[in-house]
Each structure stands twice: as C-alpha cells, then as structure tokens.
Amino acid sequence: MKKILVVCGNGLGSSMIVEMNVNAILKDLGKEADVSHTDLATAKSEQADVYLGSEDIVESLEDGKKNVVKLKNLMDKNELREALENNL
C-alpha cells in the first residue's frame, strides 16, 4: 500500500484537515492508501511515497528523490483530487 504524508508547519492543524480530505477523496476514488500527517522537520526523515503540502512549505523537502506534490491552495478539494489522481 502506498503511503501519503501530509505536511504543514506545525503538523497539527491544516495537515490534519487535509489528511481527512485525502481520506474522503480516496474513498470516493475507490483507492486505498496509508495516510498520515506531520510537521516539516519530521517529514524530512520520514519515508513516504507521496509528500503533500502547500507550495511554500513542502518546497524545502525536495531532494531529487522524494515525490513532493505542491498544492497552491491547501483547502481546494478539486486541486487535491487532481493531485491524488496524478500521483497514485
């Protein structure tokens, strides 16, 4: 199963909301994945298949190896759905 990690600055508020949105969309798409959320510092050392977060935050995760998906508007469910469809 693929692992999706949602990342925000604090790893408490917005990333948790996005995690709930991701779960809802995955259910809708009929796909399964292991979804969790965390803060930026932890994300750097945690393994995942997809790193998801707002543009200005997850930019610093890019090291050429990680699959980092940058969202313009974290709360836009259509953008999120598109990003998930393209990356799973």
Binding site: C8, G9, G11, L12, G13, S14, M16, I17, M20, N23, H37, T38, D39, S54, L74, M75
Partner: peptide, 30 residues
C-alpha cells in the same frame, strides 16, 4: 499530534452526521 489523531476525525465524523450544512472552522494557515 498523536493525542488528537483519533479524536478530531471522530468529532468531524459525528458532526457531519448530526449537523446539516455544517461548516468546518479550520486552523489559521487555511
């Protein structure tokens, strides 16, 4: 994060079922 990991989604789940047109109030970075 660990403490709230189960509680907040459960809260949202219950609220969505009980409150019609519930509007989520989100953290400020939204």
């Amino acid at each position: 994060r660990m403490l709230l990991g189960e509680i907040v989604p459960a809260f949202k789940g219950v609220a969505d079922r009980i409150v019609p047109n519930a509007k989520p109030a989100l953290d400020c970075p939204a």
